[in-house]
Simulated scan of single mutants.
Amino acid sequence: MDASIIWTLRKPVIWVWRKLVGWAGAWTVEPIYRQANDYHLALRNWQRRWVELAANVEYKLMTRSSFDQDGNPEQSIWVRNTGTTLIDELHFCVEARLGSVSYQVPLAAYRLRPGCLARLPLIGLPLQDLSIRKDGLFATYESIRVYPIRIAREQRIDIYSTDGVVWTPSHDDYLNGEWKRWRGRLYNVKAMTDARRDHLLRLGHRWCRRHGLWGLDAASLFGEVWRTRRYKRLPGVLMFTLASRAPVINAMLWLRLLLRIERIAFEFDADMQAATEYVLKKGQSAGPVRVIHWDAASPTTTDSA
């Protein structure tokens, strides 16, 4: 075949190959990556905590990074009234700082009934991001905090003077390296790494630990077999040594996931459920604040710590 004809057919062959790979991946690889990424998002949502903003007022900050690709590009904050009286007005501020630069988002909620929540968009707050330059690594902001300004309820106005809770982002999404790109989208696959570790522990228990052999490396297991003269345990050690090889255990995990024998899903255990219930009911204290009470019926003011 002439070389020019082969060169002409190059583009259509590549196009067909990419279509085939995309079709096969949509049925095999992509659903597994999506499971792992959904696990990551569910874990992050569970880790978000209600924090005390003021007496009987709590908030949950829903910031985002450039790695978040869950179809919801908006950053927001939830506030809720945990008291028994109506909050007529709630004014507070979300502030991100980068050195001497302050990104302030003043917010307000009105007629917040007991037990009710309000969701407010954080327009103007930068995404959590990192950039690499010649002179170092830079973040869009170094810290973020939420502090109350004024709350009106029960014919009284409370003016607050507090710095609120300061939170420093850890940038785990950027630094953990547990990301895969598939067809132009990023997926967090840390859950797959955890699944491989759990599978390795299960194999170690099945072939070694339940027979009194402890260890996860071949040298220690073989040494224990020879030292204790438990030669009948040698086949189990050989099986575990083979199965614990990275290519083998990866193949075993992918096979179980592809055949739908195993699924990556975020599930609550008893301890997680108890911790969630505690935080939902109690929140996290922002510490003491200084409040100036203005009684609507009288122009006098009093200070209290």
Rank of each mutant, 00 (worst) to 15 (best):
A3H: 12
S4V: 11
S4T: 13
W7P: 00
T8Y: 06
L9G: 11
K11Y: 07
P12F: 06
V13Q: 02
R18Q: 05
K19Y: 06
V21Y: 11
T28A: 13
V29E: 01
V29G: 00
E30S: 03
I32S: 00
R34M: 09
R34T: 15
D38Q: 04
H40S: 13
H40D: 09
L41I: 15
A42V: 10
L43Y: 10
R44Y: 09
W46R: 09
N56Q: 06
V57T: 14
Y59L: 12
K60Y: 03
R64G: 07
R64M: 09
S65C: 14
E74V: 14
Q75E: 14
T84G: 10
V94C: 09
E95Q: 10
G99S: 04
V101K: 09
A108P: 14
A109S: 15
R111K: 10
A118N: 03
R119E: 15
P121H: 07
L127S: 03
Q128R: 11
S131F: 07
I132R: 13
R133D: 03
K134Q: 07
F138R: 10
F138Q: 11
A139G: 01
S143E: 15
I144Y: 00
R150T: 13
R150V: 04
R156C: 07
I159C: 08
T162E: 11
T162M: 05
T162A: 05
T162H: 11
G164V: 14
W167S: 10
T168R: 12
P169H: 05
S170P: 00
H171V: 01
Y174H: 12
L175F: 01
L175R: 02
N176T: 09
G177M: 03
G177K: 01
W182N: 02
R183F: 07
G184H: 04
Y187L: 00
Y187E: 01
N188V: 04
N188D: 12
N188K: 06
A191G: 05
R196P: 02
R197P: 00
R197G: 01
D198G: 01
R202V: 07
R202Q: 12
G204I: 05
W207G: 00
W207E: 12
L213Q: 06
L213K: 12
W214I: 13
L221S: 13
F222P: 00
R227Y: 03
K232A: 15
K232T: 15
V237T: 05
V237S: 05
L238G: 01
F240K: 02
T241C: 04
T241P: 00
L242F: 09
P247F: 09
P247V: 10
L253H: 00
L255R: 13
L255P: 00
R256T: 02
L257I: 10
L258I: 14
L259V: 03
I264P: 00
A265D: 02
F266Q: 09
E267K: 04
D269V: 15
A270K: 03
M272G: 08
Q273V: 08
A274N: 04
T276R: 08
V279H: 01
V279R: 01
P288H: 01
V289W: 05
V289R: 11
I292P: 00
I292F: 11
I292E: 10
W294F: 04
W294E: 05
A297G: 13
P299Q: 11
P299F: 02
T302H: 10
S304K: 06
A305T: 12
